[in-house]
């Protein structure tokens, strides 16, 4: 039932439009890549898709309901989001980090019930981080950390998973591993995924569909990677100059 769709959406910060006229919908079991050069507005679109930003114009909906009027906890049960924020923990084990992903389902004190523990264990095993459960999160390698954060994102058993550049600072080997896990998850759990990435080689390998944003912040093409990602096209997509908008600082 819960499909995420953008209906003529304009995204941006503080009422200022950044990318306009975005329309697409995610399909269950499919990985949709959001591809384009840095600064094109990928993160802004993802933040809008996850409800952190309100659209400047248009409507983002889940099923037939408006995402921005959906109760927060209901939204959090349908959708999981993995952002690029680096986290600084001091005394947290891997299990502590993953456990928080069950937030929406636990009581006021965050007590885990048997079901919660089972789901956490299953999810961690599936992603291959169960052996690390007692390790200090801050001491893990970047690749391990990303996998732990993915485990945290899937323990809420979401129907929609949104990931912002999940592999951008990983080595090639880790990238491939990571996306293998994602592909497997999408198929086996019928999850709809929206992933931003800027490495086109990976997009071709991983995505079922790709939404291309050009450097001048337009949705340029949407379709199957093998149909639209020709070498010529990629060159034109990335050659366009990005504007001066700083996505990290917002308004300036």
């Amino acid at each position: 039932m819960a499909e995420l769709c953008f209906e003529n959406v304009t995204v941006g910060y503080a009422g200022k439009a950044l990318v306009s006229n975005i329309s697409f919908s995610l399909k269950k079991g499919e990985i949709t890549a959001l591809a384009g050069p840095n600064g094109a507005g990928k993160s802004t679109i993802l933040k809008t898709a996850s409800g952190l930003l309100k659209p400047v114009k248009g409507r983002v909906c889940i099923g037939d309901r408006d995402l921005n009027t959906l109760p927060l906890d209901e939204l959090a049960k349908t959708m999981s989001v993995m952002l690029t924020e680096r986290i600084n923990t001091e005394y947290m084990t891997v299990y502590d980090v993953v456990r928080v992903g069950r937030y929406q389902y636990t009581d006021m004190f965050g007590t885990l019930k048997q079901d919660d523990r089972r789901i956490i264990e299953e999810s961690m095993k599936r992603i291959g981080v169960w052996d690390l459960k007692d390790a200090d999160f801050s001491k893990l390698s970047d690749g391990q950390k990303q996998r732990v954060l993915l485990a945290r994102a899937i323990v809420s058993e979401p129907e929609i998973l949104i990931l912002d550049e999940p592999t951008s600072f990983l080595d090639m080997g880790y990238k491939v591993d990571f996306f293998d896990i994602l592909k497997d998850l999408a198929k086996s759990r019928d999850v709809a995924m929206l992933i931003s990435m800027h490495e086109m080689e990976l997009v071709k390998k991983v995505a079922d569909r790709v939404i291309c944003i050009s450097g001048d912040r337009r949705i340029d093409k949407i379709g199957k990677p093998e149909d639209i990602l020709s070498a010529d096209y990629l060159e034109s997509l990335f050659s366009m100059k990005c504007g001066k908008y700083e996505e990290y600082y917002g308004k300036d």
Partner: peptide, 23 residues
């Protein structure tokens, strides 16, 4: 004490807290 659960989620950042159902 009653806020300890959202405080824990907030340790992972404002945006993350926003995506798991915290106002």
């Amino acid at each position: 004490e009653a806020m300890s659960k959202p405080i824990e989620a907030y340790l992972f950042g404002e945006n993350y807290a926003g995506t798991i159902g915290i106002d």
